[in-house]
Design a protein around this nucleic acid. Structure first.
Lengths: 210, 210
DNA sequence: TTGAATTGGTTTCGACTCGATACGAAGAGA
DNA sequence: TCTCTTCGTATCGAGTCGAAACCAATTCAA
């Protein structure tokens, strides 16, 4: 609708101009949507589907607290039931295994297998990365910033949960004497490596309501 | 995999630095994928699904030649059968109608109804536009350029068909004496308005193979 | 002009996905 | 101990999508 209106207005202006160079600006949201659909289409390969690829990627990036079915559901913006099914499929294919938590017996931690790790080298999104790498570096940087803002904005706006790296989280309490990182929310320590990873329980400074 | 490798390398560098500001750069492709998934999630509303919204949007932007089931299939990157089903759903809901072509009786042209046009005012992607509009103008411009390049690059790379505005197309032959636009491929005239619209039969100058 | 090949579109079928729901097990708190 | 909540799973049904078969119209070649 917006675009249509724009077209019409534009037309009024140059009613008689016939074949001047017309570079129509497509709305950014439509572009993002189209790229998203293409990216989605790329992800039917190796017998996986987009949700399964997304899961593998998430599990690789997530810290200890977030490598669980529930956290995956939050990340994917789906239900626990659906996430469980996705995990079933991946486990059946041998790309991950679920190990019970020794403390809380309701929880099961997810671990990528060797095969799972190896598979990620063939991540179809690498093709997208390749295309991206052809862009000028400063364009890439600007886009990364913009998309990041967009991402967090969308997340807060659309009921999604914020997520991010531990060290930038409001619950992050710095290093312990043993050289670990402390999470104030979970009341638990994290390895240095884990603290640089993705967490689903993330609190940023500002929380603008919808 | 790339990300993981990056993390490790990074870790080696600042092995001892503990809580310095670490702003992890997420890979652009992952960001795009996430936004794509969020945008997808937004599009389950008004009883439509993402494919149906995409179809409506396309039909609004497409020129006469491209408002057909086959062209829609190309645009969506799906099969004609699936596109036909999507159109069935939309027609049943009263958002479009299919009218036979008077010349080629195999062809059916698609026309948005009033209801269809009106529905596009509630396009859930407008929410994305809103989020985008909060970004600085120059960032938006840069992103638009980058995404446009990405889009065409991906399309040619991944078997997709190029598409674009008539006036920028290789088949475009300029204005006729009657003030219409001429398409050399279809050997047919287009209204001035249509020539500014999206076409599925688009030929750009450079075609880099996969 | 007649038959084959092609093209545009639809229908049917089956695999699959996903959300809703119900459920069971474990933990938390009174 | 009793209830409430949380985590995870299984089941069911609606719906989506691709593959294949199919039909009708057009084009092309013999």
């Amino acid at each position: 609708m917006w675009n249509r209106a724009y077209l019409r207005a534009d037309e009024q202006n140059k009613m008689s101009a016939q074949d001047t160079e017309i570079t129509e600006k497509e709305s950014l949201s439509r572009l993002l949507d189209r790229i998203g659909r293409m990216a989605r289409g790329l992800q039917y390969c190796h017998g996986l589907n987009p949700a399964q690829w997304d899961s593998l990627r998430f599990l690789e990036q997530a810290n200890r607290f977030s490598r669980t079915p529930g956290a995956l559901a939050v990340f994917l913006g789906t239900t626990k039931g659906t996430a469980s099914q996705t995990l079933n499929a991946l486990e059946k294919k041998g790309y991950l295994k679920r190990v019970p938590d020794p403390e809380d017996k309701r929880v099961r931690h997810i671990e990528l297998t060797e095969a799972g790790q190896a598979l990620l080298a063939d991540d179809p999104l690498n093709c997208l990365d390749l295309a991206i790498s052809r862009l000028p570096v400063d364009v890439i940087d600007t886009m990364a910033d913009g998309l990041n803002q967009l991402c967090t904005n969308l997340q807060s706006r659309c009921g999604g949960q914020a997520m991010g790296i531990c060290t930038a989280c409001g619950h992050f309490q710095g290093a312990t004497s043993e050289g670990n990182m402390r999470c104030g929310y979970k009341q638990a320590d994290l390895s240095c490596e884990d603290a640089r990873r993705f967490c689903i329980i993330f609190e940023s400074g500002d929380s603008t309501a919808c």
